[in-house]
Write a protein that binds this DNA or RNA. Structure first.
Length: 800
RNA sequence: GCCGCUGUGGCGAAAUCGGCAGACGCAGUAGACUCAAAAUCUACCGAUGGCAACAUCGUACCGGUUCAAGUCCGGUCAGCGGCACCA
């Protein structure tokens, strides 16, 4: 046999699979279904990254195995193609984003095919195609119809460089996600989706899905549900109620001041009563100039201004307490006002120290002269609560007390905010709303969808943070669908998260022209059985898409309430230097180079063998060569196959053990140890030879990892196509040898190794151990205190 | 600051329920083949001491539980990720 020509072999089988529709999923098949989903890529100009290869290789292996196990597998791919980088390229090069996107998709497609992923290429979706975004707009209008879309004038995160408004998620740390410039605060009327209405459903849904524990936790923290109380404090001068939110109503007797956010409306309402309005206005001005970064920076000195002329009254004891404005209280959370308990909240403590406000202890146990005490302890100075020691009981008691008196009630708050759903950019789905001077906001009728993105020449955003669409009169000027009068179109587009919030639904029926997908297709394929992707998408993308899905469930469009039955995440591939791969560091590995030099199978094996799939691992060129060597040895071995259509007796347990190991490791994402087990078996073959039956099983195990060489060798050996065969079976009873080598410890230290029958009982194992010369020597002249035998594992003799 | 994950040879890493630490691979050393090199094959490959058999130490650090700890418990440190003035 000639030397292994990986390039020819890989092309040959890729062509075979394509021509035979090997990976085409069948809607409504009699077979059990399996829906494996990977996060579709953003088709950037840089082309594929080795990270993509690792991200897809995990479920690629599972999908290939499932098909051999008799499943009807849906393993789709598509492109999440709206977004700023494409638009920025278009602005820079003058090439239309449509063309840029098409070229990038072409590039990605050819690269993905070269790696031999078993995607169903007949179901590719592209979020920027009219047939796709028509339904993105449709879902948006359904939400509009159900009152989940609203507009609000608020301070927004504005990127002066990109000239866009960003969501909190896209501007974390006060930096723009795209260009990393500093974000400034700016007032603007923007679109929101009322995701907070689904906060509890999103939280409750986590209880019945199979996500990795840390993924669940991240989502829970993101939603950030807290329980507490709303309490009304009367303002002495105006008899107004100032409502606050607290998670510690039990500390109500320790309140010595109140703080409201700089933007709180009670200030504007009482301008006449407040005597130091100038100072307050100055402070407000100062705050609005601060970037998000400055405002949230830790260890920062507390700032604030006392409101002269307004005094709050503690509803429990009638004590008069001062009110301050300070930017450590946010408008967006709770009521934008807090009761400050400096003895038991560190932030309040710092503020009180700086402004010389009283600190009253209500829970014993700490030293409140040094810092706030947040632990448990006996209640003091607290009226009805005095003497209580259990926090939960104190909170329950004060809550019922507050409710009885009508001054407060139980409350729930979420850290998650409503979803700012707009961009002032060209390359996104147009928001299908018309502004009519008579009718207000009017949705574009469903039968006029898609509202097409108009072709333009100039993609530069407007100078005032307006979308480029605002400059196109033919787009903006329209008739109101309701009254027929002159109206103007909304010019904002949707954020990039829109298209990816429902793409997994479209895969089930990608060419449907009447609905997002047919009810039959959705019923057959949903939920996604296994979704794998990056940790970076666990909060934003996953929460957004679960929200959309739950909404669609509520309006009867999808048959299940959770889209993803199982979710896992892969770790990063770091550069050879152990740092995150980046162009600026110059440590980026191009998957194409690996495919060209060693073949797709080597690349696939390596990204799975390099380390724990869920962990970050640095790239190593020489380890790639090790994987190449592994495949070359298999190829060489195939030239010396022994005859035989069943395992040789001396190979039976090795074969069954390896099948068991690989089968189970794939399910548990132990891809690295699965490959290691195959390497071990290959080493046994090298020593003891290999017959056709054994080799056939070996190739079956290898197939999901290195499908090209497996197909080729299997066909050469058996004249059959491996992707049309069945997965290898194992018999647990045959995985055990008749004898096993175990260690004998004397006082916990290994002193000998003995061979015993696998099913030996304690008496037999100890008898064999005591016959061993090393053991005899070690226990000689000593008293045996205790003897332990763990079946098939160890003997430990304790002696003095 | 809070939450989570991780810490094991020169390197990437393995190690079911607490039961032989370092599987598998890389790199390295020696040998075979070769005029030579590459490739391939064989052997060795945690540290210290010893000619050796062997002994002692060894899973970030300190302590504990146990016949037995990488694994469990308490504390500390470091790296990575998430959240972050969330009341």
């Amino acid at each position: 046999m000639e030397k292994y020509d990986f390039s020819a072999v890989e092309q040959k089988w890729q062509k075979y699979w394509e021509e035979h529709g090997t990976f085409t999923a069948v809607n409504g098949s009699e077979k059990p279904k399996f829906y494996a989903l990977v996060e579709f890529p953003y088709p950037s100009g840089a082309g594929m990254h080795v990270g993509h290869i690792k991200a897809y290789s995990g479920l690629e292996v599972v999908a290939r195995k499932r098909r051999l196990e008799g499943y009807n597998v849906l393993f789709p791919i598509g492109f999440d193609a709206y977004g700023l980088p494409t638009e920025n390229t278009a602005i820079k090069t003058g090439v239309h984003p449509r063309t840029v996107t098409d070229n990038n998709i072409k590039k990605f497609t050819s690269q993905l095919k070269k790696v031999g992923f078993s995607f169903d290429w007949s179901r590719v979706v592209d979020t920027t195609e009219e047939d796709y975004y028509r339904w993105t707009q449709w879902i948006f209008l359904k939400m509009f119809e159900k009152g989940l879309v609203f507009r609000d004038k608020t301070l927004v995160n504005y990127c002066p460089s990109c000239k866009v408004v960003l969501s909190n998620e896209d501007s974390q740390g006060g930096k723009c996600d795209i260009c990393h410039s500093d974000i400034v605060q700016r007032e603007k009327e923007v679109w929101y989706l009322r995701i907070t209405e689904y906060a509890d459903k999103l939280l409750e849904g986590l209880e019945k899905v199979d996500y990795l524990p840390n993924i669940k936790l991240m989502q829970q923290n993101w939603i950030g549900r807290s329980t507490g109380a709303f309490v009304d404090f009367e303002i002495k001068e105006t008899k107004q109620k100032l409502k606050i939110y607290t998670t510690r109503p039990d500390t109500l007797y320790g309140v010595t001041f109140m703080v409201i956010a700089p933007e709180h409306k009670i200030i504007d309402e009482n301008e006449a009563v407040i005597s130091n309005m100038d100072a307050i206005k100055a402070y407000r001005e100062e705050c609005s100039k601060k970037t998000e970064l400055e405002r949230t920076q830790l260890n920062k000195e507390k700032t604030g201004v006392k409101i002269e002329g307004l005094t709050a009254v503690n509803p429990l004891n009638g004590k008069e307490i001062p009110i301050y404005i300070a930017d450590y209280v946010m408008t967006g959370y709770g009521t934008g006002a807090i009761m400050a308990v400096p003895a038991h909240d560190q932030r309040d403590w710092e503020f009180a120290k700086k402004f010389g406000i009283d600190i009253i202890e209500v829970i014993k146990g700490g030293d409140i002269t040094k810092e706030a005490y947040t632990g448990d302890g006996e209640m003091v100075n607290s009226g009805v609560l005095n003497g209580m020691t259990n926090k939960k009981d104190s909170i329950a008691k004060i809550l019922s007390f507050l409710e009885e008196k009508g001054i407060g009630e139980k409350g729930v708050q979420y850290k998650m905010k409503d979803w700012a759903f707009n961009r002032q950019r060209y390359w996104g789905e147009p928001i299908p709303i018309v502004h009519c001077p008579h009718c207000g906001m009017v949705p574009v009728p469903y039968d006029e969808l898609p509202l097409k993105l108009p072709p333009v020449e100039n993609f530069e955003p407007g100078t005032d943070g307006q979308s480029p669409l605002a400059k196109i009169d033919s787009f903006v000027n329209c008739k109101c669908p309701k009254c027929g009068g002159d109206a103007k179109r909304e010019t904002d587009t949707m954020p990039q998260w829109a298209g990816s919030s429902w793409y997994f639904l479209r895969y089930t029926d990608p060419h449907n022209t009447n609905a997002i997908a047919s009810p039959e297709a959705l019923k057959y394929w949903l939920p996604v059985d296994w979704y794998n992707g990056g940790m970076e998408h666990v909060t934003r993308h996953m929460i957004y898409s679960r929200f959309w899905h739950k909404f669609l469930y509520d309006i009867g469009e999808v048959p299940v309430d959770e889209p993803y039955a199982k979710r896992t995440a892969q770790g990063l591939i770091l550069g050879p230097d152990g740092e995150k791969m980046s162009k600026s560091r110059g440590n980026v590995v191009d998957p194409n180079d690996v495919v060209d030099a060693y073949g797709a199978d080597v690349l696939r094996i390596y990204v799975l063998f390099m380390g724990d799939y869920s962990q970050s691992t640095p790239w190593s060129d020489s380890s790639v060569k090790g994987c190449k060597r592994f495949l070359d040895r298999i190829w060489a071995l195939s030239e010396n196959l022994l005859d035989g259509d069943e395992y040789r007796p001396e190979m039976v347990s090795s074969m069954h053990k390896t099948v068991k190991k690989v089968t189970e490791d794939i399910e548990g994402m132990g891809f690295n140890t699965a490959v290691a087990a195959m390497m071990t078996l290959l080493n046994v073959f090298a020593e003891k030879g290999v017959n056709k039956a054994e080799f056939g099983t070996f190739l079956t195990l290898l197939y999901p990892f290195a499908p090209h060489i497996s197909e080729e060798l299997y066909f050469n050996t058996f004249g059959k196509v491996l992707s049309e065969q069945s997965w290898a079976a194992f018999d647990p009873a045959l995985c055990v040898d008749s004898t096993v080598e175990i260690a004998v410890q004397i006082n916990g230290k290994v002193r000998a190794r003995i061979n015993i029958p696998t099913d030996a009982d304690q008496a037999e194992a100890l008898k064999i151990a005591h016959e061993n010369e090393d053991v005899i020597r070690a226990v000689e002249g000593k008293n045996i205190v205790k003897e332990i035998y763990v079946k098939g594992r160890i003997v430990n003799i304790v002696c003095k």
